[in-house]
Design a binder for these strands. Structure first.
Lengths: 230, 230
DNA sequence: CACTGTGAAGAAATTCACAGCT
DNA sequence: AGCTGTGAATTTCTTCACAGTG
């Protein structure tokens, strides 16, 4: 019996959720969504199987959000979906801009997964005059010089960089300057940003190289399920 | 035979390199490549700045590969490039197949980063008869039923899944059956594979959701540089 | 001296194991 | 009984700090 000074039950803003847990919440969300029309509750064991992790991890992760399960029963799918969505900020709408309308940018613009949950692509941006004015995936392409006005008027807080590596830093500078606070960077370059801007990097080639390592070594890979980004 | 059960000193790529280190080696590789035509040596401090990590981590990471630096001087760029490439298995050629020739599959097929280092896209595969026979990014699209023959003849060990989520598991089954040992999964689904197959998952929407979390919370993000996948 | 390489300390993440609720 | 929630143990990763070397 140790009346530890607990983190406090303040849903919405308070509790500190470990980074590793944050990175898994979207996985749980998807798994829950997939079974939401078939199952009313899930056990940590079941959710673990769906998400490709182990049950103890699921329970620990979810415990950071609060006590949303019922002992002897499990977690109510709909309720948990809502709680995780809320924790991830998906109950509100996030206007997103994609900078760089090349192959990748277009693929991203057409990717349903983005618009699916909370993220709404509101602008495509490019520096190429030939592309500006054309319509891709239902969105007119805007010139990058109009970024500040765009960010302001559409309330864009999150942007995706899908440009060549050479211009990624310049784009990041412009985005930060325009007021964008979070950047998802697909360009194969490390970019520097002010401390109040968050960057996440996804490098397609890096993922292959990591696979290559385990493949050449002996075919052994870390963990039982798949390694997701985090 | 070997007195030590696992983690022995295998010939070719010796000591046990931690997963976290493996995930960073491609970043160092890219950074080194970027400066290779301008600088002959780099210090751990310099490389750290280029890669967006701290110097102690660079030294520790590189120490797992061997003692490739020179005290008082730093690391010779070319030599380190070679050593990391070798560790990642990039000195050999990896034939890669992309399954799913939708927007994302096409973007990946056109992505230079893949072919840039060791990975050579040798086949595009789809189930849609309308796509089979067409040419995308210089590669004819093959029907998925021909996968076993293709894997066999081209010596494909690594494949990329860029299909809708619904068919990802079926594709994974076929890939494993055909003899593919490593899979990079872009489909938003957790897939099950035999234990001798490695899966890495990249989920574009998940990355945005993680950003969303930190954005809504208070704009604070983990670490100083960008969080890469790993 | 300048910088690497590395034990050791510290922090974070994972897993165990079981008390406690329904 | 069944399953969650969580302290505690364990493992992994990061950072420190400095001995050692070109």
């Amino acid at each position: 019996m140790s009346p530890r000074p607990s983190a406090g039950d303040r849903p919405g803003s308070g509790r500190r959720v470990p980074d590793a847990t944050v990175a898994r919440l979207p996985i749980y969300l998807r798994a829950l969504f997939d079974v939401s029309d078939r199952e009313r509750t899930v056990s940590s064991e079941r959710l673990a199987a769906l998400a490709g992790v182990n049950a103890a991890k699921v329970r620990k992760d979810l415990s950071y959000l609060g006590s949303y399960g019922t002992r002897g029963v499990g977690y109510e799918v709909e309720y948990l979906l809502f709680q995780i969505s809320r924790e991830l900020g998906l109950t509100r709408d996030w206007p997103v801009a994609i900078v760089g309308v090349g192959n990748l940018g277009q693929a991203l613009a057409n990717y349903d997964g983005f618009s699916a949950r909370g993220f709404r692509i509101v602008a495509l941006v490019d520096a190429d005059p030939a592309k500006v004015g054309t319509v891709v995936a239902g969105h007119p392409v805007t010139h990058i010089d109009d970024l500040p006005a765009l960010v302001e008027s559409a309330g864009i807080a999150i942007a995706v960089i899908a440009t060549p590596a050479e211009v990624a830093q310049d784009v990041a500078d412009r985005l930060a300057e325009a007021g964008v606070r979070s950047i998802l960077n697909f360009a194969p370059a490390v970019i520097a940003v002010p401390p109040d801007v968050t960057v996440r990097k996804v490098d397609l080639a890096v993922e292959l190289q990591i696979l290559g390592f385990y493949q050449q070594r002996d075919g052994t890979h870390p963990g039982v399920g798949q390694k997701a980004s985090g």
